[in-house]
């Protein structure tokens, strides 16, 4: 009986550590962590997805390793140890990306190295992986990775459509053919512009701030609306 209850509890915990960071405790939109890469690499959807995948890899690996070493690392040197572990994985990712996806490496540039000081990666190591089991840390890494990836992808879609007027695929992921989906901007075969409603401001840093601010405002507005509804319901209930 006790065993069953324990297992139930463990399953709930696994589910929580995987699902919570995807929406409820989204690292970017709710926790406001990792804003630096989120603003910098969201000029195109492909760059954002690439960054998201590499981020997920680094976070999951460092989470698992930190969690498996949590009883060995003395408390005096936790932060330096974590930094070395994270920096190692980032360097591995850098070398592998440079070797196998040079276009992605060139696009992300210094922001790949800056994963080392990403608040989410170090934060999850300190706050979660150092206190939880390996499996939970693994799930937490994947969950946070997915949460971060969809968040920056959303920003990238908005910025790419508004900024360039098209969605371009195949420029960074060269294994798929080059496709340009015209949305706000249309060009004919000889590159003559037919119509162009794009606002190039959204490709500049200004656009990054505005889009991020607008998304956070929408999230806050939804939150306010929900709170209002809950209050209203409570009032109804009281009657």
């Amino acid at each position: 009986m006790k065993d069953l209850a324990y297992r139930e509890e463990a399953r709930a915990r696994h589910k929580e550590s995987f699902l919570a960071p995807i929406i409820k405790a989204n690292p970017l939109f709710v926790m406001l962590l990792g804003t630096c890469p989120a603003l910098a690499v969201t000029k195109s959807l492909e760059a954002a997805i690439g960054m998201g995948i590499l981020f997920t890899f680094v976070l999951t690996c460092s989470n698992v390793l930190v969690s498996s070493l949590r009883k060995i690392i003395p408390s005096e040197v936790t932060t330096p140890s974590y930094i070395v572990i994270i920096a190692t994985f980032v360097t591995l990712v850098k070398l592998l990306t440079n070797a196998f996806m040079p276009e992605l490496y060139a696009t992300l540039g210094v922001f790949l190295s800056l994963l080392v000081v990403n608040c989410i990666v170090l934060g999850r190591s300190e706050a979660f992986a150092s206190k939880n089991t390996i499996f939970d840390s693994f799930l937490d890494g994947i969950g946070n990775g997915i949460g971060f990836t969809w968040a920056i992808s959303l920003m990238a879609i908005i910025r790419e459509i508004l900024g360039t007027g098209m969605m371009t695929f195949g420029k960074i992921f060269t294994f798929i053919p080059l496709i340009k989906l015209p949305i706000l901007k249309m060009v004919d075969a000889s590159n003559e512009i037919i119509y162009d409603y794009s606002i190039s401001l959204f490709q500049t840093p200004v656009g990054a701030f505005l889009v991020f601010g607008a998304i956070l405002a929408v999230i806050a507005a939804i939150g306010n609306l929900k709170a209002k509804k809950a209050k209203y319901k409570q009032k109804e209930g009281n009657k």
Binding site: E76, P80, S81, I85
Partner: peptide, 10 residues
């Protein structure tokens, strides 16, 4: 112990 752990990780 701290020194050994840190240097072996390194």
């Amino acid at each position: 112990r701290a020194a050994i752990v840190l240097s072996s990780i390194g």
